[in-house]
Lab assay of single mutants.
Amino acid sequence: MEVRTIKVFTTVDNINLHTQVVDMSMTYGQQFGPTYLDGADVTKIKPHNSHEGKTFYVLPNDDTLRVEAFEYYHTTDPSFLGRYMSALNHTKKWKYPQVNGLTSIKWADNNCYLATALLTLQQIELKFNPPALQDAYYRARAGEAANFCALILAYCNKTVGELGDVRETMSYLFQHANLDSCKRVLNVVCKTCGQQQTTLKGVEAVMYMGTLSYEQFKKGVQIPCTCGKQATKYLVQQESPFVMMSAPPAQYELKHGTFTCASEYTGNYQCGHYKHITSKETLYCIDGALLTKSSEYKGPITDVFYKENSYTTTIK
């Protein structure tokens, strides 16, 4: 009895394709271990004539594949690729409408935090270190965002349907971005203890939790000093293409032309909904596939993004 075979390709990165001759009487799992086709788990399936010449994702289970996976995804987590594939199996079914010149995501599976993050990423200057993220990001900007969303979920250790947080998501993504040249110098002034300067680099240099107003941050924000008295913390120097200011959701007025974009969060910790506000020729609110415009805006804002380049204080 002759062994019926077909020729397929296996890959971990969709760049390096490895030619395989597979036995049609055995499952993919018996031949390769966990195997995925377009995100779908085909591990328990036997090869079919229609699979001839198709590319299958496999887990990096030998040295060659491990090197290829690390170079593309910059992670050695053995569960990463499987999590990416199972997320992709959902995100490829989502709709990605162009809204006001940006790629958004039609609401499904509690994905409003991903839509808000995706919209924000198209408006701030950011370059990702893992080629996987950078490639998928370019495709997302062009309207094909399924891979990018699935990668975000995998890097953030999230599953489809789980509630997510924009600030946490951005923080994970910033860790995989090139923020080497970003720098922030802060000064804390206390009447009792004097003053202390701190220099922050990388992710810490672009994120701040405690106030939404970048102007206020430049002037000074009140913080408790270690001595128990009130101290003032203010920005001395900022070198970065953008800054992200966050605070627990509270009524906040966004003035046209003073910011790049913002995240609105309605609801409580267990259950809520994100919308995205962007400042173009007027203010726009993007909620999944829905767009509304207004000249002014007041609502429960939790993150505001500002364009920056270089700032030095005039406070002496």
Score class of each variant (00 low, 15 high):
K307C: 12
P248S: 13
C225Q: 01
K92N: 08
I152D: 08
A231S: 06
G101D: 09
C190L: 03
H273R: 02
L81H: 00
T199E: 13
T91M: 02
G194Y: 01
Y284S: 10
Q195G: 07
D135C: 06
H276I: 07
L37T: 09
L37S: 12
Y265H: 05
Y252K: 04
H74A: 04
Q20G: 09
S25Y: 10
T27F: 11
A40L: 14
M209H: 15
L200T: 10
Q98I: 14
T232H: 02
D38I: 08
L290A: 15
F32N: 13
D109Q: 13
Q30R: 12
R4F: 03
M207C: 10
K95R: 07
V99P: 12
I105P: 04
N157S: 07
F148A: 01
M170H: 01
N16M: 11
Y306I: 00
K92Q: 11
V243P: 00
I6G: 06
V99C: 09
Y72F: 11
E162V: 05
T266P: 04
L173R: 04
Y284K: 03
G220E: 05
T199K: 06
L88E: 05
L17N: 08
P224H: 11
C271K: 13
Q251W: 12
W94G: 05
L283I: 15
S246V: 01
N187M: 14
Q134Y: 09
Y72L: 08
S181Y: 07
V160G: 01
W94F: 04
V221P: 04
S279N: 08
Q30T: 15
T159S: 13
D180R: 08
L151G: 01
Y269F: 15
S181L: 07
M207E: 01
L88K: 01
K255Y: 04
P249V: 15
P300K: 10
H256V: 13
N187W: 03
E2I: 08
N111Y: 02
L173S: 06
N157A: 04
E68I: 03
T64Y: 11
L290T: 12
A117L: 03
T43K: 10
N129F: 05
T91R: 04
R141M: 08
P130C: 09
V185G: 01
C193T: 02
S25R: 11
Y274R: 05
K93D: 12
Y138K: 14
N187T: 11
V185I: 13
T75S: 13
S213H: 01
T278G: 10
F174I: 05
M209F: 15
L121M: 09
V21D: 12
V8F: 02
G202V: 05
S104V: 08
Q195D: 07
K298L: 13
L37A: 11
K44L: 13
T258P: 01
K95A: 10
S171E: 06
W94D: 01
Y28K: 09
I152Y: 05
C182N: 03
L151P: 03
I286E: 01
D13A: 10
M244K: 06
T169C: 12
V3N: 14
T198C: 10
F70I: 09
Y72R: 09
E215L: 03
T199H: 08
P224T: 14
T75C: 12
L254K: 03
Y269R: 15
Q230D: 11
Q195A: 13
V189G: 08
P131L: 05
S104M: 00
G33Y: 06
M170W: 00
I124N: 05
D165K: 08
Q31S: 12
Q122A: 02
S25P: 03
Y73N: 04
H256W: 14
Y172G: 09
K280D: 08
C149R: 03
C285M: 11
G101W: 08
K106T: 12
Y113P: 03
K218M: 01
S246C: 06
E308I: 08
V189R: 08
V21L: 13
T159N: 12
K233F: 07
I124V: 04
V8K: 05
D77R: 03
I301R: 03
C112M: 05
S213R: 01
V99W: 11
A247G: 08
N16F: 07
A177C: 14
L88W: 09
I277F: 04
A145L: 01
T198Y: 15
F80A: 02
C112N: 02
Q270Y: 15
T199N: 04
K191P: 15
I277Q: 14
F259N: 02
A136F: 07
Y172T: 12
K298W: 13
T75R: 09
A146E: 08
I105F: 04
A146C: 06
K218H: 00
L17K: 08
E308D: 05
L235D: 01
N110P: 05
Q134V: 10
K233L: 14
A142G: 13
V58Q: 10
E296H: 15
P60G: 06
K127C: 09
E215T: 09
D303K: 09
E215D: 14
A132R: 10
N14I: 10
V188K: 08
F259Y: 03
K158R: 01
C227Q: 02
E52C: 10
G202Q: 04
F259C: 05
M85E: 07
T169A: 07
Y284A: 13
K316N: 15
L283A: 01
L235A: 01
V58K: 06
E308Y: 00
G257T: 04
Y274D: 04
F148E: 02
L235Q: 00
L81S: 02
D180F: 07
T64D: 15
